[in-house]
Design a protein around this nucleic acid. Sequence first.
DNA 1: TATTGTTATACTCTATAACTATA
DNA 2: TATAGTTATAGAGTATAACAATA
Lengths: 155, 155
Amino acid sequence: MKSLSQASFLPVIHELARTYQAFEQFSSQHIRQLGLTPPQFDVVSTLGNSKGMNCKELSDRTLITKGTLTGVIDRLEDKGLVTRTMQPNDRRSVFITLTGHGEKLFAQAFPAHLDYMKIAFRRFGESDLSGFCQELGRLREGFSLALEEQEEAVV
Amino acid sequence: MKSLSQASFLPVIHELARTYQAFEQFSSQHIRQLGLTPPQFDVVSTLGNSKGMNCKELSDRTLITKGTLTGVIDRLEDKGLVTRTMQPNDRRSVFITLTGHGEKLFAQAFPAHLDYMKIAFRRFGESDLSGFCQELGRLREGFSLALEEQEEAVV
DNA sequence: TATTGTTATACTCTATAACTATA
DNA sequence: TATAGTTATAGAGTATAACAATA
């Protein structure tokens, strides 16, 4: 393995950022037509594929931090898409579910979004897709392990 | 090539988002220690590797839209890191350069940031890196082409 | 007419940390 | 003491569109 002293990984970072931006731009164009922001769509999609969950789990799955999540849920509640209910077993916990209106939006918007996203993947076959997943997974592992190391060092 | 009717590309999207988030989290932890936000660091890095440029070019390179860029540059100007100067040849255009203070920050912070990021790539060799670039590039092309199609369709 | 950049509006997300209620 | 979630604060980025100056 050669040394990386000349920062030969810079193009990887650049490509990752540009690829994500291209995805985000393409994806959000459709999401905004639904009257949602990307984080809001993320929450609705996560809830739509479940029977509801508390904020902690929702935060873990969407990677939205708890403080931010409160605001996102507030806005979804204002739109009548989700509800908060208290849990008798652990009264610290708040259970979030889609309302009927939210379920309806999910049932309509989620497949529509997949259909829209499909355009971007039309040129790829199954082996391409598993290749992407594998490479992205390895790359992610690099960042995750580095972050852990960093946090250990700080603590 | 198999049909993608079951949205077999969903894991790719998921991995891309998670990988980018892991990168962003790791990277921004260091950037914020410099007193900058990620977009601000992006601008400083872009300017630091050049002799200055106008807002249009800066916008194209960083993918920050012009309206947002005005605000980012305002804040960098407040911090004494960049300056705006008028261009005699095209008086609509504004030329942005790093100040002495900005150059100094760049000269110190950019290598330090690379050094920090290197941790995440330690486990990879050159062939891994070029593999990442290649796969990311292909994926990006999918989104870019899809976006173009979409914009044509709208127009 | 088209382009460069700023301004205006209104919102949404962000980081950070203190705080409340419960466990 | 630890955890779940909210609140408070202050800032920063976002979309969108109108606008002024210049080409």
